[in-house]
Design a protein around this nucleic acid. Structure first.
Length: 451
DNA sequence: AGCACA
C-alpha cells in the first residue's frame, strides 16, 4: 500500500489548506511582499513573515481554499518559480488551517507607549523626569502615570507611531540616566510596549498626568495644596512650593554669566518673560520668570546642578521663588522684561553676546502655546554661549582654544563630570548620542536601521 | 528549502 508517510512534516503532498507555507524567503521579507505574491490568486486575508529560526519562512492565508489551490497549482506547473526579490520561494499547503497571529496590542505600533518603570524606587520617578527622557525623541503630548499590579506605569503620547517607535527602540530595557535621579534612588529600568490608546485624556496638570499641548489646562487642586506626594521630591524631601519663577544661584562662577547667557539657557524650556540678576552674599543670583509653573518645573528639573560651561564652571542651583511676577523697573544688564517689545531695549551690552540678543528677543511677548513650545532638549538654544561670548572679554583669563569647541559639542544638560559614567552606563545610545536629549539642531531623531 | 513559542 502506498501509504502516507509516518512523518507528516515531510510528506510530498499536504492536504489542501487556505494557508500556504513559504520557505526560502529573502531576509526580512515584508508582509507587503507576501500580499503582492498572493494577490493574483485571491484575497490574502492574513500573513505571517519572518518565521522560523532563520526567519526566512512565512505563511499566507487566503480568504478561500480555492484561491490557495489556484496558487499552488499555478506554480506547480509554471516554468517560472514563485519569487520574492528575485529569490525563488517554495510553496506548499500549510499543515494548519489558519494563521494564528500572536500579535497582541503590545506589538502593534501606535503613538502611545506603555512604560513600566521597574526598580526599587520606581515610584520616586517623577513625571517630569519621564518627560525629559522621552522628549529626546520628539514632542511629548501627554503623560499619565498610574499604579497597576505591574508596578508603576506611565502612558506617554507622541504625535505619531514613528516617533513613539524611535523612543521605544532606544529606551526599552534601558535605565533612566542616573543624573536625572537623586543619588539615593535605585536604578530604574524602562520596559516599553505600545499602548492601544491613541489620545490620552488629561483633565488636569497634576503629579500623575500632564498635557504638554495645553499649558493652560487647570492644575489639579491636589497638586497645589502641598498635602500630597506632589510636594515630595525624588528623595522624599519636602520641596518648596512650585512657582513660575525660578531662583538661580550660580556656583563656581569662573566665567561671566550675563543676562543673555541666562536667557539663552532658560529659553530652551519655554519663553522667558523676565530675568532679574543680583548679588547675594557675594554670589550671583537670578530670578527667571516663565509664564507658567509647568515650564519652570521642567526647566528646574533639567538644569538643577548642571553647569553652564564645561569643566564644572557656573554650576546652577535652582529653587522656586516666592515671586510670581517680577517687577522690572528698567531694562539694563542685570534685569530685563522680555515681554515688552521695545527695540530700544535691544541694545546689547558691549561685551557679551553682542550678536545674539536680537534673536532671543524674538520670543518676547509671544504666547506660550503647544505648537510653539519646544520640548527640552529638542529645541532652541540651550547651547552654551558662543565662544566669543562668555569670555575673551573682560577679566577672564585666557582660555585654551579647545575649550569652546568642547563646550559646544557638549550636551549642556549633562554635568560634565557625569559624562564618563554615562558612557559605561545605563542608557546606551547609538553613536553620537549621549544619554540625554541633545538639541534638535544637532540630533536627528533616532531612527534605527535607517541611513 | 520543510510549519509559527504564545
Amino acid at each position: 500500500m502506498a501509504s502516507v508517510s509516518s512523518q507528516p512534516q515531510f510528506r510530498y503532498t499536504q492536504p489542501p489548506s487556505k494557508v500556504l507555507h513559504l520557505r526560502n524567503l529573502p531576509w526580512e521579507c515584508t508582509e507587503e511582499e507576501l500580499i503582492e505574491l498572493g494577490k493574483p490568486f485571491g484575497k490574502v486575508v492574513n500573513t505571517k513573515c519572518n518565521v522560523g529560526a532563520n526567519r526566512n519562512q512565512a505563511f499566507i492565508e487566503f480568504a478561500d481554499l480555492n484561491q490557495a489551490i489556484a496558487m499552488i497549482s499555478y506554480y506547480a506547473s509554471s516554468s517560472e518559480p514563485a519569487q520574492v526579490r528575485g529569490k525563488t520561494v517554495y510553496l506548499q499547503y500549510s499543515n494548519r488551517q489558519e494563521i494564528v497571529n500572536n500579535k497582541t496590542t503590545a506589538d502593534i505600533a501606535g503613538n502611545v507607549l506603555l512604560v513600566t518603570i521597574e526598580g526599587q524606587d520606581a515610584r520616586l520617578v517623577s513625571i517630569d523626569v519621564l518627560h525629559l527622557v522621552f522628549s529626546a525623541f520628539g514632542f511629548v503630548h501627554k503623560i499619565t502615570t498610574f499604579e497597576k499590579t505591574a508596578g508603576f506605569q506611565a502612558l506617554v503620547q507622541f504625535s505619531d507611531s514613528e516617533t513613539a517607535t524611535s523612543a521605544k527602540n532606544a529606551l526599552d530595557g534601558r535605565i533612566i540616566p542616573r543624573y536625572l535621579l537623586s543619588d539615593n534612588v535605585a536604578p530604574c529600568t524602562l520596559k516599553i510596549t505600545y499602548s492601544a490608546h491613541t489620545d490620552l485624556s488629561v483633565k488636569f496638570q497634576s503629579h500623575r498626568s500632564r498635557d504638554y499641548t495645553n499649558p493652560y489646562l487647570p492644575v489639579a487642586p491636589s497638586a497645589i495644596d502641598g498635602s500630597n506626594q506632589f510636594s515630595l521630591g525624588l528623595d522624599g524631601k519636602k520641596l518648596e512650593p512650585e512657582s513660575n519663577v525660578l531662583l538661580a544661584s550660580i556656583e563656581n562662577m569662573q566665567y561671566a554669566v550675563t543676562l543673555d547667557v541666562l536667557h539663552m539657557v532658560f529659553s530652551a524650556f519655554g519663553p522667558v518673560q523676565k530675568i532679574a540678576m543680583f548679588d547675594k552674599n557675594g554670589a550671583l543670583q537670578a530670578l527667571i520668570q516663565y509664564p507658567d509653573v509647568q515650564t519652570a518645573i521642567v526647566a528646574k528639573e533639567a538644569l538643577e546642578g548642571h553647569c553652564i560651561y564645561d569643566g564644572g564652571f557656573c554650576k546652577l542651583h535652582l529653587s522656586y521663588s516666592r515671586h510670581t511676577d517680577l517687577s522690572i523697573k528698567l531694562n539694563n544688564d542685570r534685569s530685563r522684561d522680555y515681554t515688552i517689545a521695545n527695540p530700544a531695549m535691544v541694545t546689547p551690552q558691549p561685551s557679551a553676546l553682542g550678536q545674539q540678543p536680537v534673536q532671543t528677543m524674538g520670543q518676547a511677548g509671544h504666547q506660550y502655546n503647544g505648537t510653539q513650545y519646544t520640548a527640552p532638549g529638542m529645541g532652541q538654544p540651550m547651547m552654551p554661549p558662543q565662544p566669543s561670548a562668555g569670555w575673551g572679554t573682560s577679566a577672564v583669563p585666557a582660555v585654551p582654544q579647545s575649550m569652546p569647541v568642547q563646550m559646544i559639542n557638549h550636551n549642556p544638560y549633562v554635568p560634565p563630570a557625569s559624562m564618563p559614567q554615562m558612557s559605561h552606563g545605563m542608557m546606551q545610545m547609538p553613536p553620537g548620542q549621549s544619554g540625554v536629549p541633545p538639541p534638535a539642531s544637532t540630533m536627528p531623531y533616532f531612527r534605527p536601521n535607517h541611513m
